[in-house]
Each structure stands twice: as C-alpha cells, then as structure tokens.
C-alpha cells in the first residue's frame, strides 16, 4: 500500500519536473530549427515530434510561433505551393531572433555541461 502511494507520488513528481524542463526547451528547439532554415508549422511540428521529449502538438506549436512572431524574434511570409496545393506560412528568424538564439544556445551548453559535471562528479 505504502509502496503503491510512493510510486504514484514519484510519477506525479516526474511529470511535474518534466513539464518544467520542457517549458523553455520547445522555444530553443523552434528557434534553433528556424536558424537552420525557413520552415512552416507542420514541418516544425514534425521535426520537434521526432525528439519525443518535447511533447508538442498543433495546439501548442502555433501559439508559440505567434508569441515569437509578436515579440519580433521570428517573421513569416506566405508561400504558394509549387505543386498547386494550399499556400503555406513560412517562418524564419529575425536578426533579433538570431541574437536570442545565440544567447540561449550558449546558456544551454553551459547549463548542460555544469549539470553533467555535477551528476558525474556525485555519482563517480
């Protein structure tokens, strides 16, 4: 009984922790993807879904893109499909977004290194 409760709590804690961890990660992932090349919503979503730890969906990716666009980090343009299909809205980094991506990337690398060193140091 006690064990069962413990397992439940661990599961809840892990879920909460993972959601904290993911919060800022999707933003960096989108910026980094757009830093690589211009892309549209579905393409960004597919790329992010490949790394399953992001857990993004249609319902979260478009509000995120909107937020980044409103704050001037990315910009968009409509592109006619070459195969005569529907138009797609392509996003790309603005100079401001490129600057932010640089800062976030450096911060992330520092963070990853510090945390790895810490965990390895403790566990060895």
């Amino acid at each position: 009984m006690h064990y069962k409760i413990r397992v439940m709590q661990d599961k809840d804690l892990l879920t909460a922790w993972k959601s904290q961890l993911r919060k800022g990660a999707a933003e960096l992932a989108v910026l980094s993807l757009l830093g690589h090349r211009e892309s549209y919503g579905l393409e960004i979503l597919n790329a992010l879904s490949r790394g399953s730890s992001f857990e993004v969906s249609e319902g979260s990716i478009y509000p995120l893109l909107k937020r980044l666009e409103t704050s001037g980090k990315i910009r968009s343009r409509w592109v006619e499909a070459e195969d005569g299909g529907a138009r797609r809205k392509y996003y790309s980094l603005s100079p401001e977004g490129e600057h932010l991506l640089g800062l976030m990337r450096a911060e992330w690398q520092r963070f990853r290194q510090d945390l790895s060193e810490m965990i390895d140091g403790v566990e060895s």
Binding site: Y40, G41, E58, Y62, G85, A86, R88, K89
Partner: peptide
C-alpha cells in the same frame, strides 16, 4: 483570417 488560413493549410497537408 491569417490564423484560419494557416490552420486550414495544416489540416489540408495532414489530410493529404
């Protein structure tokens, strides 16, 4: 209008 068209385009791509 922009948001609706983007959503429609996404759904069309998926439907394909």
């Amino acid at each position: 209008q922009d948001l609706l068209e983007e959503t429609a385009s996404h759904l069309d791509d998926c439907a394909a």
